[in-house]
């Protein structure tokens, strides 16, 4: 199909998407960021979605970083995947909306991405819900006749 051929400049000898190499600077940046995390506790976030990446740049970066021990799925306004790469401290975060489209993509250099922690506002709401649940349970118990 014409579109498939036209959109693939790598068919021409001497020109390939490999020539772009926008993934290498990011890897360098991650080296510095990981050092800063290790020695100073400084966290870094890189917005991957906003970088002028060709498809193969992102693919190569993903392959280089790989997958590590932790894969988390967040269900809020659609699905998000938070994965620790093969390099502990470097996390790959992909946010999708309810239609499955990617709305944000970033790499976080941190001990734990903030979004994984239970949030204070949610904990406050959870307290209220749990308290009502416990009250309800108490009421039910009070109304149940004791047999023995």
């Amino acid at each position: 199909m014409m579109t498939a051929e036209a959109g693939n400049p790598s068919q021409h000898p001497g020109i390939s998407l490999q020539d772009r190499g926008n993934d290498l600077p990011v890897l360098h940046e991650l080296c510095h960021a990981l050092t800063a995390l290790h020695l100073e506790g400084t966290e870094t976030v890189i917005d991957i979605k906003s970088l002028p990446f060709g498809e193969s740049d992102e693919h190569r970066l993903g392959k280089a970083l790989g997958t590590g021990e932790v894969e988390a799925v967040l269900h809020a306004l659609g699905e998000s995947r938070i994965t620790e790469t093969a390099f502990p401290g470097i996390w790959w975060i992909e946010h999708r909306n309810e239609q499955g489209e990617v709305i944000a993509k970033s790499i976080e250099v941190t001990r734990i991405p903030g979004i994984l922690k239970s949030q204070q506002a949610d904990i406050a709401a959870a307290r209220r819900r749990l308290e009502s649940l416990v009250q309800l349970t108490d009421q039910v118990d009070e109304s149940t006749p004791i047999d023995n």
Partner: peptide, 20 residues
């Protein structure tokens, strides 16, 4: 939820081409 809100803010930052 608050997590959903943070996701919303992250996507908004990306939309506005602002740093995370």
């Amino acid at each position: 939820s608050r997590r959903g809100f943070l996701k919303f803010c992250a996507a908004t930052a990306s939309l506005m081409a602002l740093s995370p």
